[in-house]
Design a protein around this nucleic acid. Sequence first.
DNA 1: ATGGTTTCCCACCCGTTCACTAGGGTTCCC
DNA 2: GGGAACCCTAGTGAACGGGTGGGAAACCAT
Lengths: 152, 152
Amino acid sequence: MRISARADYAVRAALQLAHARDGGPLKAEAIADAQDIPHKFLEGILNDMRRGGLVLSQRGGKGGYRLAKAPEEISIADVIRVVDGPLVSVRGVRPPELSYSGPAESLLPLWIALRANVRQILDGVSLADVASAELPGEVLALTRDPASWTNP
Amino acid sequence: MRISARADYAVRAALQLAHARDGGPLKAEAIADAQDIPHKFLEGILNDMRRGGLVLSQRGGKGGYRLAKAPEEISIADVIRVVDGPLVSVRGVRPPELSYSGPAESLLPLWIALRANVRQILDGVSLADVASAELPGEVLALTRDPASWTNP
DNA sequence: ATGGTTTCCCACCCGTTCACTAGGGTTCCC
DNA sequence: GGGAACCCTAGTGAACGGGTGGGAAACCAT
């Protein structure tokens, strides 16, 4: 279960855009510098976000990128889905397309439950929540247990 | 956020072993046939599980594999960690090793919460739970909402 | 209208991981 | 000893992560 580099970079870029949204658009290079992301790689990611309707771009002298919607209305899951496809997949396919047999039959409901759980978090947190450092209460609650911060 | 083929195969093999644990050891090929897994690929996975202490192997005529512990005492997370390393990672590194700056600072607690959530499920479900089709109540509750089964 | 800036789009490259296959070596029981 | 299984190494093809280069299209300012 790994968050890809594309997804991590995309979210960080979106957060940077959410943060500096009053004022002109941000150039790709400025975002790359601020978040320490390879800038040509980031260009491709911003392009995906544009095609996905999350971001608007403007070329030319004082061009750059800006969010297409209010940061409150874009969830972290929205960003990840646009650059990486389905939120959670097993062997590259979405859980409902799987079929198991024998003693593994109850594996499907398990993956479904796992996905529902992940959605609860990533669909429920917006760019505005993260950028303003005010995560929803139920998410914050999970971070209180010190065990959540230890390794395995 | 994808479950790799290795992890999926490993869990299914472990479930097969949990199911047939009274009676001699199972050969790799028998598991491969039962679960439709490429058998040479599975051999490597079973080897990882042996080195991780989840499984015991025996060579020779009536050899094969069997679980090293009771199925109640092996969690799904145990299996995944043995074959795939850390349960959830961002860009290949574990959340606590990450560092974010600027408007992305609250991304770390978000990943931590996500990981805690995933752990809650995968650490809390054992091979015995799945093999007997009796998932814990809190997991089952997540599968009740029909929205959990629809695609995006 | 012209020049400079910046996005946009294409193609390519390299190294690593993933999924999988092949074949020979080693151990075990009968 | 001899078959049957595990064990180990190597190799393949595809995809991913990361990086580079060059050029066309759009925009702004002068």
